[in-house]
């Protein structure tokens, strides 16, 4: 198991990038009234056929050759179900994959959000050619970061590999997450 939601997001979204997605949408929605957190990662990568999809939740399924177990998806599913949440994966060969995991935020086993800003910045740095879109919402108020908007201002995609730019992106996301969390009267959201 991983420590927090931000680590699951990094792990799952890397699968999208490795599946040659051109666009990956990461949505994290916190709902304080319904006491839920819903994570959705949607990509337009190469997707999975029905046979692979059936066994992808099994730890002994992986596409890699370095080891025989793939723990990313089983970990996320286990974490979601451990706090009476839900897990769902839909995929179509050649079209893409959507993974959804729900968590009950008042459950003792609900993982903390962790450093989501560092996760998004790490994904952008690692796969700058992919269009990352991150939406964080708290009770209906949202912050959206679209890598295309950043590139409009930055001009050169190569600059996404510069430490200064990556750290700026991380701080920018963190600042906006903090702002949304504070809107909810300072209540601890995760």
């Amino acid at each position: 198991m991983l420590e927090d939601l931000s680590q699951y997001i990094l792990d799952i979204a890397e699968n999208s990038a490795k599946a040659k997605a051109k666009k990956v949408l990461i949505e994290l929605a916190v709902d304080n009234r319904n006491k839920s957190i819903v994570l959705r990662v949607s990509d337009d990568g190469w997707g999975m056929d029905e046979e692979f999809l059936r066994k992808v939740e099994d730890p002994f399924t992986t596409t890699r050759k370095e080891r025989k177990v793939g723990l990313g998806i089983p970990f996320l599913k286990q974490a979601a179900l451990a706090c009476e949440g839900f897990f769902d994966i839909k995929s179509k060969k050649g079209e893409g994959t959507v993974i959804e995991a729900g968590f009950r935020k008042d459950h003792i086993d609900c993982p903390p959000l962790g450093d989501v800003a560092a996760t998004i910045a790490t994904l952008i740095m690692g796969w700058p050619e992919c269009r990352w879109i991150f939406r964080y919402s708290v009770d209906g108020n949202s912050f959206i970061l679209d890598l295309d908007d950043l590139l409009d201002h930055l001009g050169d995609r190569e600059l996404l590999k510069s430490p200064k730019v990556v750290l700026w992106i991380k701080d920018y996301i963190q600042e906006n997450i903090d702002l949304l969390n504070q809107k909810k009267g300072g209540e601890d959201i995760a």
């Binding site: 950043l150 409009d152 201002h153 600059l159 700026w168 600042e175 702002l179």
Partner: peptide, 14 residues
């Protein structure tokens, strides 16, 4: 907390 960063910072960095 006032907003400190905005996207125009990226133009400056560039």
């Amino acid at each position: 907390m006032p907003k400190i960063k905005n996207l125009d910072d990226l133009r400056k960095i560039r």
